[in-house]
Design a protein around this nucleic acid. Sequence first.
RNA 1: GCGGGCGUCGCCAAGUGGUUAAGGCAGCGGCUUGUGGCGCCGCCAUUCGGGGGUUCGAAUCCCCUCGCUCGCC
Length: 346
Amino acid sequence: METPCFMPVGTLGTVKGITAAQLGDTGARMVLANTYHLHLQPGEGIVAEAGGLHRFMGWDGPLLTDSGGYQVFSLGDINRINDEGVTFRSPRDGRRIELTPERAMAIQMDLGADVAMAFDQCPPHPASEAEVAAACRRTHSWLERCIASHTRPDQALFGIVQGGCFPGLRAESARVVASMDLPGIAVGGVSVGEPVEAMHRILRQVGPLLPEERPHYLMGVGSLPEMALAVAQGFDLFDCVLPTRLGRHGAALVGGERWNLRNARFRHDHQPLDASCPCPACRQHSRAYLHHLIRAEEMLGKVLLSLHNITHLVRFTRAMARAIREGCFAEGFAPWEAQSPAAHTW
RNA sequence: GCGGGCGUCGCCAAGUGGUUAAGGCAGCGGCUUGUGGCGCCGCCAUUCGGGGGUUCGAAUCCCCUCGCUCGCC
């Protein structure tokens, strides 16, 4: 794959106040939705009843569902975890829910996205090598069960490499997952609180270990420098909450920087946020207006900044794709690797 | 005019003689990486309406003064 792709996240069948049509206008090609959240509400039965997730949420482009493995560990109140699966209490109504590889596959098949993700165990960042090794073994055995129970031929299944910050475990996990002959491979267990240098080391190590002909998906990563670094290491696909979460919190990505639109310096700034950007926020509104909307806690401000930030990341991935096609990726984007401030050349 | 009450950060508000004057809101800035529009973290009164006393020590006690407020004329 030579076209890096960024996926905005549509947890609940919307991207936080943005319609599918608006999302399409940003240039985003693929959307990630969430098995965990959709299972809790409204439930995969309702989605299946609607004719699948595409029709339910009004998005007819490519769609990927995360398996819920990460959310169970990061959001859930876990009661029990063993080789069989995970039992946790629903934060919504307190009922006990059991998620196993088979169950995660059944739910994702009901949801009907184009890509389903394997059910994995994502250990939290400060974890011992023994703990991470156990999570890897479990993730690998769960992957076999996911493959065995995933029977929907019109849906791809991606495996997930774990291994934390331990090179030996990463190498072993990459070998095991690559051997399964799946249509795509993801690297998980990054951006879970580890230092950025640790993530960079993992990317440099694991990227080259993955089969070149199959898409590499780096889960949860969406800062510009890290996407560029990952693309340099062969990754193609990213998802991240950052553009929309930053937008909701009043921040905009402009020229490789992060601006807090709440800041008083924008109060009298009547020029466009980013004159080079084609998004609705930049085309039709000023920094002062966006500042006002954010200060007034107006939802429109959050939506406009989210649209802008998604557009920004999509433009960035497209610029990288063009650079790869034209054979000048290293000159244009390698500066990111060294954290160079000169990177805004696209 | 007489009598009572009150004046502590832009706003609300603790504190009623003892180390560097709580807290909330607002303000100023920061954080957010396989999504709860959640949340978290810094910074924000050398000074208590003003002036003068008493005291080792005063936002706290006394005197004068200014302002607001309630009641009575």
